[in-house]
Computed example of a mutant assay.
Amino acid sequence: MNLTIVEYPDKRLREISKEVKAFDEALHNLLDAMYPKMIETNGIGLAAIQVAQPLRVLILNIPDEEGNQPDENLLEIVNPVIIEKAGETTYQEGCLSVPQFYEDVKRHETIKINYQDRHGNTNILEADGLLAIAIQHEMDHLEGILFIDKLSYARRKKFEKEYKRLQKERKGQ
């Protein structure tokens, strides 16, 4: 399965992802293909919709202190639901679907989610720090929300201008 990252302003990023009902080979193949794509693009998280698959699936691998992302730290999260949230934090986020752009976004500091693994087993995960932020960022993708949607009006206008300029530069290369 050869996956390509869908980039803003592609309308597919606005699609609301569907619940996974079949924990089958197709799901496993998707998860297995998403991981190398995320690593090769220097991501720490990837939602299935970002590779044009509108399913409630996301993966995360938060780098350790040395910046490594060992395979055993990979989290595969299917059909996530936030069941508890607390606190507020601001973190500079980026997104594989909005390349070369980083912005401060407010999120919950700690969250607890209910989710399923690739085999359909139900799990609960409590997260804080970068993991909590990354989960919230990826879960937004499942609702068709991008981190740039959370910017103030003024920042959003500045982003649109900068992004158009970057797109022109990339095309000119």
Rank of each mutant, 00 (worst) to 15 (best):
N29P: 15
Y163V: 02
L74Q: 14
E93C: 06
L125T: 04
L166F: 09
Q167F: 01
A47P: 07
R170I: 00
L131M: 14
P80H: 09
L146D: 03
E93Y: 07
Q69Y: 05
A47Y: 05
I16D: 09
T110D: 05
L58V: 00
Q92T: 05
S152Q: 10
Q92Y: 12
N42Y: 08
K161A: 08
M1G: 12
N61W: 01
D10H: 06
V98R: 03
Y153Q: 13
Q53D: 06
E65D: 13
A154N: 14
I113V: 05
G120E: 11
R14A: 03
L27E: 13
I59N: 07
H137F: 05
L166Q: 08
Y91T: 06
N42D: 12
E109G: 10
I82G: 08
I62S: 07
E109F: 00
E76Q: 14
S97R: 13
A154E: 13
V6C: 05
Q136W: 09
K171R: 10
V57Q: 11
Q92M: 12
E103S: 13
K18Q: 11
T122R: 12
Y35V: 08
N42M: 03
H119V: 00
S17T: 01
I133T: 14
E40P: 10
E160C: 04
F101C: 10
S17F: 02
I49N: 10
I5T: 03
I145N: 15
K11M: 03
A86K: 15
I113T: 07
D64L: 02
L31K: 12
I39S: 13
N114F: 00
V81G: 06
L125W: 11
A132Q: 13
Q116L: 01
K171L: 02
I124C: 08
A33I: 01
H141I: 03
E93G: 12
K11T: 01
Y91V: 03
K18T: 03
K106A: 10
P80T: 02
Q100C: 09
D24Q: 04
D140Y: 07
D32A: 10
N61D: 09
S17M: 01
D32M: 05
E72Y: 11
K171C: 02
Y115M: 04
V105I: 14
E160I: 00
H108K: 10
K157A: 04
E76T: 14
G43H: 06
E138M: 08
E126G: 09
K157Y: 02
K158I: 00
Q173C: 04
D71S: 09
Q53M: 00
A127K: 07
I62E: 06
Q116S: 08
Y35A: 06
G45L: 01
L3F: 02
Y8A: 03
